[in-house]
Amino acid sequence: MLELRLVQGSLLKKVLEAMKDLVTDANFDCSATGFSLQAMDSSHVALVALLLRSEGFEHYRCDRNITMGMNLNNVSKLLKCAGNDDIITIKADDGGDTVTFMFENPKQDKISDFEMKLMDLDSEHLGIPDAEYHAIVRMPSLEFSRICKDLSSIGDTVVISVTKEGIKFSTRGDIGNANIVCRQNTTVDKPEEATVIQMNEAVSLTFALRYLNSFTKATSLSETVTISLSSELPLVAEYKIADMGYIKFYLAPKIED
């Protein structure tokens, strides 16, 4: 038996919006730790890892580990039927082939439930080693989103370089080229407005802007994004989900042919 009650239902709505364009079908794993997902996009260039810890739910019952395969576009359609202030409960029976999403409005005078068929998906879990990154940059998520959007009007790829000067985003296209540098800035009114650069070694890597733009769909989940870079590893863009966990996006760099 699985029963997860999330008071802040809008979080789940936002999580699905953040993932549904990147990943079509995915297995949600439910265990004592929490509600999680790991999935790659269809071209195996990017990977998303989600964790919503059990402590973040008002009620969390998971008698045994369950894997539930779902089409994220369909889940997103169902969650669009929930109001932003609704409480969302996810229910499933052990060994069953359906999942139920129940929505309660704040006044508790409207209760909806939607049952959805589960899918049998091949599980492709990848081991993500703990790594020491050359550079870790925390910046406002809205700023990162703006930069990715602006640069994609000029080019298809971005070179992200971190030096002592700051983090530089560069692109080139038919009409010309563009560089945006964000310097470390900790003299701000609120900590979430800061740009904080931790650099062990300078690093410069090239990425497809299309994927970075897709990651920025998670912007509404967190005011900050943490970008981790190492020359031998995929980029990690992490959006923390307050009191609950995170959504992390991994993107393989472009490599010399």
Binding site: M40, S43, H44, V45, A46, L47, E124, H125, L126, G127, I128, P129, T157, T206, A208, E232, L233, P234, Y250, A252, P253, K254, I255, E256, D257
Partner: peptide, 14 residues
């Protein structure tokens, strides 16, 4: 020239 890397060349299936 550059080509797009793949996640599977960095992380292994478990």
């Amino acid at each position: 020239d550059t080509k797009q890397g793949k996640i599977l060349s960095f992380f292994k299936k478990i």
